[in-house]
Deep mutational scan, measured.
Amino acid sequence: METPSQRRATRSGAQASSTPLSPTRITRLQEKEDLQELNDRLAVYIDRVRSLETENAGLRLRITESEEVVSREVSGIKAAYEAELGDARKTLDSVAKERARLQLELSKVREEFKELKARNTKKEGDLIAAQARLKDLEALLNSKEAALSTALSEKRTLEGELHDLRGQVAKLEAALGEAKKQLQDEMLRRVDAENRLQTMKEELDFQKNIYSEELRETKRRHETRLVEIDNGKQREFESRLADALQELRAQHEDQVEQYKKELEKTYSAKLDNARQSAERNSNLVGAAHEELQQSRIRIDSLSAQLSQLQKQLAAKEAKLRDLEDSLARERDTSRRLLAEKEREMAEMRARMQQQLDEYQELLDIKLALDMEIHAYRKLLEGEEERLRLSPSPTSQRSRGRASSHSSQTQGGGSVTKKRKLESTESRSSFSQHARTSGRVAVEEVDEEGKFVRLRNKSNEDQSMGNWQIKRQNGDDPLLTYRFPPKFTLKAGQVVTIWAAGAGATHSPPTDL
């Protein structure tokens, strides 16, 4: 069977082979063929449309019947899901209200924590001031004790010197008594010597008188005998007598002179000795008097100093007792304040721990409710997609609110971060928990396990030699990294520990 286009092609070929045509004729024939082709295509399209309309009418009838069946089946399910969705919305509203209440309680707890922290800071300042005052008082007490020990040692030294001076005074008084006794003995010996000298002088005078009498008696006897002796021998006898008398007189005078000289010499020697002894004793007595006077003056001065030191010692002891009493009071006050502060800190920690436990429990309940609501929403969306139902505006708002919801909680030295990733086909969620104590904190952990970043959050360098970082993902083997023995993380510095297959460059001390 030939198509209209094939017939047109045969006809035009025959005409062209029979007679030659002009260009205008050819153009018109071409346009006519195009119109015929378009008409044929339109006829085919109309036939196809008619057949499709016939099929569409049958399909519409089948769809109508199916919609009636589906509407009867879905009406009950939709009512049940609407009821469950209403319950879920009520639960979500109650959870939102509970969350708002918990946020209010958390803000209240934070305000109480700030207030307690301020009070604690003030108490710590008072405690530091009390400890500083206690240290000052202890230093003052130590200085006073040192001064007291010095004063006591000086007192003992002065008492020793006073005892020595008293012994010296006793010795000097004994020496003075001995000197006085020697002086009295010398004076007695001097008086005795003077008496003996006077006696010797009297004896000498008496001997002179006796010698004169004997001489006169001898002259008288000789004169008497001379009268009786011969005149011839008188001159010879007289001359001999005169010579004998002269010789006797000379001898007697020599003896008297020698005895006189010896007596005067002895007397002068004894007198000089007595005078020297008297002068020496008088000098000793003067020196003893002077030394005794000086000793008395020094004793008086030392007694005055001793009394002054005793007064100072009594004042120091009184002040020391006052300082000890004040120190005891300060210690009791400090202990009482410290006990009160520790009790308040313990109560505050217990209260904060209780509130944190309650908040953690409520947060766990909220997370469980969020997971249940998310599961209900997934089931509802799956059924709506299976039944090709359009979601209600309320469910769209709930989905938008659930997809944009995120929370971040800080308290008790722990930080909890939650992130949620969404897509049109599926939804997944993960959470990161970080707890830090000390100078070094974990700043970031790569989700794909490529690196771990640490930061020194203090103002001092931290030695991290032979420290270890351990990481384990589920049931995978435990991964451990040990820092070099001499590694030190500077204040405020960040160090990144890269995985072996991350392709990073080893560049200490920032990249390991």
Score class of each variant (00 low, 15 high):
E202Q: 07
K265T: 09
Q198I: 00
T266M: 07
L197G: 13
L215W: 12
R221T: 03
E253T: 02
Q251M: 12
E214P: 11
Q207H: 05
N273E: 14
T218Q: 08
E217A: 13
R235G: 04
E217Q: 06
D185T: 10
A244E: 10
L226G: 14
E203R: 02
I229F: 14
D185V: 15
N209P: 02
R235H: 15
R220V: 12
E236W: 00
S212A: 05
R240D: 00
K208P: 00
E213Q: 10
L263V: 11
N273V: 12
K180Q: 01
H222A: 05
E236F: 08
Q184L: 11
Q184K: 08
Q258L: 13
E213S: 13
E262T: 10
N195E: 02
R196A: 01
E178F: 02
K261Q: 15
L215R: 14
D192Y: 03
D243L: 10
L188H: 02
D272C: 03
N209Q: 06
K265G: 13
D185S: 13
S212Q: 07
K208W: 03
E217T: 04
L245T: 04
Y211Q: 03
E262F: 00
H252G: 00
T199G: 01
Q251G: 09
K181T: 09
A269H: 14
N195C: 01
D230Q: 10
E257A: 00
Y259F: 12
Y267A: 00
L271M: 08
E264R: 06
R190T: 10
S239R: 06
R190D: 01
R221L: 11
D205S: 14
L248H: 02
D243H: 15
N231D: 13
L183A: 06
L241Q: 03
E223N: 05
L263R: 06
Y211V: 11
D254S: 07
Q234W: 05
Q207C: 03
R216Q: 13
L226D: 14
R189D: 15
S268E: 15
E228P: 06
L226C: 11
M200A: 02
V191F: 06
I210F: 06
D185Q: 09
K261I: 07
K201C: 11
E213L: 07
R221W: 15
K180S: 02
K270G: 02
Q246L: 00
E236V: 07
H252W: 02
N273S: 08
H252T: 12
F237R: 03
I210E: 01
S212I: 14
K219Y: 10
H222G: 14
D243Q: 15
R225C: 02
K260I: 11
F237A: 07
L188T: 02
V227T: 04
K219Q: 09
Q207S: 07
A250R: 12
E203H: 02
K219A: 10
D272T: 15
L248W: 05
K181I: 02
E194V: 08
A193I: 07
L271I: 10
D192T: 12
E236D: 14
Y211L: 14
E178Y: 09
G232C: 03
H222W: 05
Q184N: 03
Q255C: 06
Y259D: 04
S268A: 15
Q258D: 10
D254Q: 10
N195V: 02
S212K: 04
L226N: 12
L248D: 07
D243W: 13
N209D: 08
Q234R: 12
V191P: 02
D254K: 09
T199A: 01
F237T: 05
L204Q: 04
D192A: 02
E223Q: 15
E264F: 13
N231R: 14
A179C: 03
Q234N: 13
K181Y: 11
R221K: 12
E217S: 12
N209W: 04
K180T: 13
R189W: 09
E194Y: 09
E203K: 11
E214N: 15
E178R: 07
E202G: 09
L188P: 01
S268Y: 10
T224F: 06
Q207V: 14
R235T: 08
K201Y: 05
K270R: 15
N209F: 04
A250P: 04
E217H: 06
N231C: 06
A193N: 12
A269F: 10
H222Y: 03
L183T: 02
L215V: 11
N273Q: 12
R225I: 10
K219C: 12
L188E: 00
K233S: 08
E238L: 12
Y267T: 05
A244S: 11
K270F: 08
K181A: 08
L241N: 09
Q182Y: 09
D272S: 13
Q255S: 08
Y259M: 05
L271A: 04
E262M: 10
Q246Y: 10
Y259N: 05
K260P: 03
E247M: 02
